[in-house]
Design a binder for these strands. Structure first.
Lengths: 211, 211
DNA sequence: GTCTATACGACGATAGAC
DNA sequence: GTCTATCGTCGTATAGAC
């Protein structure tokens, strides 16, 4: 990589910002496959094509770096789902909203697979002192889904014989697991998103009037 | 492998065997919440109420201990699902079989939560050299589900517009995630199992003739 | 069987050259 | 900004007492 540092006169990210980005991506990949404690700075550095010591120019320490990966992972799905919901017409039905949220959540997982996967499994593995911050963020996201589900149940748009909390966890669990699928199974992404929506909404049994 | 296998007589488990069991359980718990590399022998020892050095009397080394936890985790669901399927009447329908497998899988997760949870997330985190053995075991389990799903699709018992591989991953993902639920969300276990079956089969939208 | 004490290696972090 | 060199810490594993 002998690219000359280009003076960021006009606009666009500085070289430093680009490097930071490269490091975060590399970190997310290693974290996703090795877990929190299994991730060595030397591995991150190698994947980002630099030496371990150089990381300290961009981040305070290991924890600071993990912090950035984690925050981004939790935020990504959140932002995307909120945006997608807001883009819906005001009079959209509950089922339509749910479809939209499912599609957006899966979409974010497919696009930011490593970051999402890393943040999802890391939440458990973090040293207890570090957990509260991210748990809170995750709960705010969970709350969005919870409202969606409860509102839909109250209006009779979806079945109300399932506990809303468990229902949310079932749905998100099914979708989150996609981050861990073997690449070969993912296949066509649009197809996958459609299937996810279909499965959550209608299940595997073909509908029959006299269920 | 680990400790010496006692020539099995008619007596109960030796004291050594009991201790081994205690250690494996402790290890599963720590592995489930800290990940592979995050699990220190001292933590396992503490939870098993002994000192770290003493573990080496029962297991060759760290890897040997993890090995036992992992093997058990993959086996548990497998055994339970196979047994449940065999107990069905020969003429059981495809949907009935699927229900049974779902119920058994969830049941095993609820009962061996730590071991299952540990083995599920550890598969990814293992050093590459150690993975093949467990992957193979997991694939054998996946094959059972695959056959179930394909057979059901071919007979028109379940919808065939979803890719069978992805369908399997969706279903198992939804169920596996239960291992990571907060204890407070699990609630009544029988209720949870029923809900899991209902959700996979019929989804969240109440059935209507003109879907 | 379990303990304490210790060697040994691996990784995080810092300092200073370029 | 990135490198090399180095220090300190911590965890695995071993040795030997009880």
């Amino acid at each position: 990589m002998g690219a000359k540092a280009r003076p960021s006169s006009a606009q666009g990210p500085s070289k430093s910002a680009i490097t930071r980005e490269r490091i975060i991506t590399a970190a997310a990949q290693v974290l996703a496959e090795r877990g929190y404690a299994g991730t060595k700075l030397s591995d991150i550095a190698e994947r980002a094509e630099m030496k371990a010591g150089s990381l300290y120019y961009h981040f305070e320490d290991r924890e600071d770096l993990v912090d950035h990966v984690l925050k981004r992972g939790v935020d990504e799905s959140f932002r995307r789902v909120k945006t997608a919901l807001k883009a819906l017409p005001k009079d959209a039905g509950h089922v339509r909203k749910l479809e939209t949220a499912i599609d957006a959540h899966v979409h974010s997982i497919l696009q930011f697979g490593d970051v999402t996967s890393a943040s999802l499994q890391l939440l458990r593995q973090l040293p207890p002192e570090l957990q509260p911050r991210y748990r809170r963020e995750q709960q705010r996201y969970g709350a969005v889904w919870h409202k969606l589900i409860v509102a839909a149940q109250n209006d009779g748009a979806i079945r109300d014989d399932l506990d809303p909390v468990r229902l949310r966890l079932f749905i998100l669990g099914q979708l989150n697991w996609v981050a861990d699928w073997p690449r070969t199974a993912v296949g066509d992404r649009d197809e996958l998103r459609k299937e996810a929506v279909a499965l959550v909404l209608h299940g595997v049994v073909p509908s029959r009037e006299g269920r």
